[in-house]
Amino acid sequence: MTDGTDTQPTADATRECGSRTARLRTTHADAETVAAALRPDNTDSMRMRVEGDALVTRIERETTGGLQSTVDDTVVNLTVADAIVDTTTTHYE
């Protein structure tokens, strides 16, 4: 995208006390709006916070497969939300 938005997440995965954890950090032109769009779909295993233009999402699941599925879903949702915010900003300002 031309606005400097980066929807390619960086991820750190760790294993904590029998659970698996991933941390995604993505940057957005409007991170607060992207976060607001995603929060209704967040489960108890997810924590999300905005740090400036970055959205940091922490996901903790009991299994590697569950973690992978949740991370995959989150990345798709982030990409779609970011594209919608970008489109509405570009075409409706």
Rank of each mutant, 00 (worst) to 15 (best):
T33H: 11
T33K: 08
T33S: 08
V34L: 13
V34D: 03
A35W: 01
A35Q: 07
A35C: 06
A35E: 07
A36R: 14
A37R: 13
A37C: 15
A37W: 03
L38D: 10
L38E: 06
R39W: 07
R39I: 11
P40K: 11
P40L: 09
P40F: 06
P40A: 09
P40D: 03
D41H: 10
D41T: 04
N42R: 10
N42H: 08
N42Q: 07
N42I: 04
N42C: 10
T43K: 12
T43D: 12
S45Q: 08
M46N: 03
M46G: 00
M46E: 15
M46K: 01
M48R: 13
M48L: 13
R49S: 14
R49E: 15
V50F: 07
V50Y: 05
E51Q: 14
G52C: 05
G52F: 04
G52H: 13
G52M: 08
G52Q: 04
D53G: 09
A54Q: 02
L55E: 06
L55K: 04
L55H: 12
L55F: 09
L55V: 10
L55W: 10
V56F: 07
T57E: 02
R58A: 08
R58T: 14
I59V: 12
R61S: 00
E62Q: 13
T64Q: 15
T64G: 09
G65C: 04
G65N: 10
G65T: 10
G65H: 06
G65A: 12
G66E: 14
G66H: 02
L67A: 00
L67W: 04
Q68M: 06
S69K: 09
S69H: 03
T70Y: 03
V71A: 03
V71N: 03
D73Q: 10
T74S: 05
T74C: 07
T74V: 11
V75Y: 04
V75D: 01
V75W: 01
V75N: 01
V75S: 00
V76P: 07
V76L: 08
N77H: 05
L78V: 05
T79V: 07
T79E: 14
V80R: 10
V80S: 07
A81N: 07
A83K: 07
A83W: 00
I84G: 02
I84L: 15
I84H: 12
I84R: 13
V85F: 00
D86E: 14
D86P: 00
T87C: 03
T87S: 10
T88D: 12
T88I: 04
T89Q: 13
T89P: 03
T90K: 14
T90F: 04
T90G: 11
T90N: 11
H91K: 03
H91I: 11
